[in-house]
Every structure is written in C-alpha cells, then in structure tokens.
Design a protein around this nucleic acid. Sequence first.
DNA 1: CTCCTCACACATACGCCGTAAGCTTATGCC
DNA 2: GGCATAAGCTTACGGCGTATGTGTGAGGAG
Lengths: 224, 224
Amino acid sequence: MATDPKERPVARVPLNRERVLQAAVTIADRDGIAGLSMRRLGRELGVEAMSLYNHVAGKEDLEHGIVEVVLAEIENPRPGKAWKEEIRRTAVSSHDAFVRHRWSCSLLTHGSGVSRIRMQWMEAVLGTFREAGFSPNLTHHAYHAIDSHITGFTLWQVGMPFRTREELVDLAESFLGRIPADEFPYIVEHAEQHIAPADPAEKPEFEFGLDLILDGLERLRDAE
Amino acid sequence: MATDPKERPVARVPLNRERVLQAAVTIADRDGIAGLSMRRLGRELGVEAMSLYNHVAGKEDLEHGIVEVVLAEIENPRPGKAWKEEIRRTAVSSHDAFVRHRWSCSLLTHGSGVSRIRMQWMEAVLGTFREAGFSPNLTHHAYHAIDSHITGFTLWQVGMPFRTREELVDLAESFLGRIPADEFPYIVEHAEQHIAPADPAEKPEFEFGLDLILDGLERLRDAE
DNA sequence: CTCCTCACACATACGCCGTAAGCTTATGCC
DNA sequence: GGCATAAGCTTACGGCGTATGTGTGAGGAG
C-alpha cells in the first residue's frame, strides 16, 4: 500500500503562477474564453481545481493575469523616434496581439483596474504625443481616439465567425445568397467589398482607419 | 383544498416575449449583465425559470433579444439630408443608447449573427455615404471607421467604474494620490485632463474622435 | 539520521447556473 | 360539457466558482 515508485513517474514539477497563466492562455486560445474554467485548467495541469488557488487569487485574478500575458507581447512606442510611425507601430502590434489571442481584447475592456504593464503602455503612448509637440489637451483626445480604434476594430474583427480569408469568402457568399438584395443593396455591396480579392497595394482594413486618425491628429497639431 | 379565489388575486396576465425582454433589460440595467440569469428573470416575473422557455429559445436568444431592444432606441440617419450631420447624429445616438444600457455594447460585439434591425442600421449608414458621393471602397472603410469608434469609445467609457462626473473626480484624485508621479508623469497629466472642469465650449470626448474621423472622410471623398 | 514545520495538493460540499424531460392546469373552441 | 392545446410547474443533471478542512512530502534544525 506504500506508494509504488511507478505512481510517481518523475519528481513532481511544482506549479507556479507562470505555468498556471500559460496553461490558461493555451486553453483560451484553443477553446475560447468560455472554455476556460478552474476545473478544466486544473485538469490540463494534472491537478485539482482548488490547487490553483495557491497561485492565483481566483478566477478574476486569473483573467487579469492572462490579459497581462498578452499585453506583454505588445511593442511600445520608442522614445525619440518619429511619432506617427511609433504610434502606428504600437497600434498595429496591439491589434496583432489581440487577434492572436481573440479573447483578450474583450477581457481587457471588461476587467476593472489598470495593470502596471498597461500603464507603461499608456505612459509611452502619451509621452510620444507630448514629445512630438501635442498639447496636453490634444494628447488626451489623441490617446482616446487611437485606443478606441484599436479596441473597436479588433473587437469587430474577432467577433466575426471566420479566421482565414477562405472562410470569410465562403461565409460572405452564403450570406449574399440569403439576404434580400432589393431591400439591402448597400449591404450587398459592402459584403462584395469584403469578398473582393485584396489588392496587395492596399493596406489592411485596420490600418485604413488608423491612418485616417493619425493624419487628422497631425493636422490638428499643426493647427495648434 | 379547491383553489381559493384569493390565491388567484386577478386574472393571470400571460407572459409574452416582449414582457420577458423588458424585464431582462430592467434587471441588466439595474444589476449588470452578470446579474441576469434565467432564474432571477423568472423570479422578477413571478414565474419559474423554465416557463421562460415558452417565450425565448434560451439564454442566447434572450441576449439577442435585449440587444435588439437597445438597437431599437437608436436613431438611423435619414436619407436626403447632409451626410455628415446624419452620420454624426446616428453615432451620438448609438453611443447614448449603449451608455444608457451599459451591458449592451459588449453583448453586441460578442453575439454572433446580425439581426434584422442591425442590418437596417447598416444599410442606412452605408446608403448615407454612397449617396453623398463616396465610392464603394471608401464607403466600406468609412463604415468600419465609424463603427469602430462607436464601439471602442463606448466600451472604454462603460468599463470605467464611475457614472457621474463627481465619481470620476473622486476616483481620479484617489488614483493620482496612489501612482508614482515620477514614473508616470504623462498619465498624471492625462488624469488631470479628465478632472479638469469641462469647458462648456468643448464638445464631449466621444465627439472629438468622431469629428476627427468625419473630417478625414470628407477630405478623402473630396480627393477621390 | 530523526523530527518538525509548513507550503501546497487533495477531497468534500454549497449554492449558483442553463436547460432537458415530463407533468399539470387553465383557456378557448366545438 | 368535453377536449385540445398553450403555457405554466417540478424534478433532475452536469458544470461552475470557491469556502473549508485534511493529508503529505520536502527541507531545515537538532
């Protein structure tokens, strides 16, 4: 009845917060955020659900934690460089990270409290504007405009039920077959725009709105 | 043992989908979307949870339903009028409706499938651009830029843990007292911008980004 | 080498949740 | 009055987050 050595195949690797968060990110990426439960996460780690509470304070803390894992993948704007390009870079990088982890953006908007890593990003973005000659007031508005575009566009994108361009075309075509074209002619046209083969010269949709905002901000700064 | 008349105080008002949805909206407005469960909704209506399934197909259908209640509050752009003003009107109206029902915007981004009422809004917005001389391609981008701003800004706003200007000031001041000002000088400045008494001449934050986008779109159209 | 300690994993239990399946009752039509 | 049917109720299942209490194994002290 004594513990058979074979029952302890190897020295047990102790859990820690990082391993817990990494496993949670893996589950959320694979099964969606709704598939992430304390019990499933425990199973994934070969552990009972309650054992996780030694490393995270609860489900909410777990969610904060996995958002921070994603935030750590984002490139911050670098000081001393051209502001427009740096803001563009960090916006695209944010968008990419949120799309890689499709659950993360909505979790970020839900969770209350701003984590340290998010504050570092904010500080870098605000500083980029200020040091490019934007007034405090215009910087304030610029930050919200950029942040809203990243969040809003990304949430639209990850809310769509397709991932590849092929799936998009399939879905859009079946959609076009089902809606009354005489009642919604402009929606039909809009769907066709989505289907149209991407012109390699044209930038991705996300960057269209982004540059619209950046150009507008530049003009406002120059007018100040 | 026969039913005492007093036990049937009045002729029972039968449930219907509209009453169910209205009660659900009331609960979500009062207690947040997390407080809305089939059991609580039944209790609110003096009915067992399972009875609700005679009027909604399930929780998901309930959520679609209450989102549609909110969407019905949004003013669509009117055809034949100045495009900029109409897009502005419907954007502000959307923002207002989503803020009145703070849960609605995130539910809209989550829910798969586009309801008829949403398609009518899309059609009206797309038509406004097209009939103002925007090309199909520019209309496509314009739609996403506007939609992203509405969604992104509103989600930021309803995610903040305050509703009144007073609560904002309290929170921002306690926040300012806690963060290291030497490490995050620009965040401090940003928070001060939020606290600064609103200049009555200045438009609300939401409309700043909105006009930035509208002006940019106008320039792009004129350049086409 | 032995023993103590304590971090950390485990087991059990509670009150929620959505909803499947089956039963009961009230209402409207003949 | 009799009956079909719509719409309510009851019970039950599996899953959830987590409070609480127990067991155990590795590492330091003697």
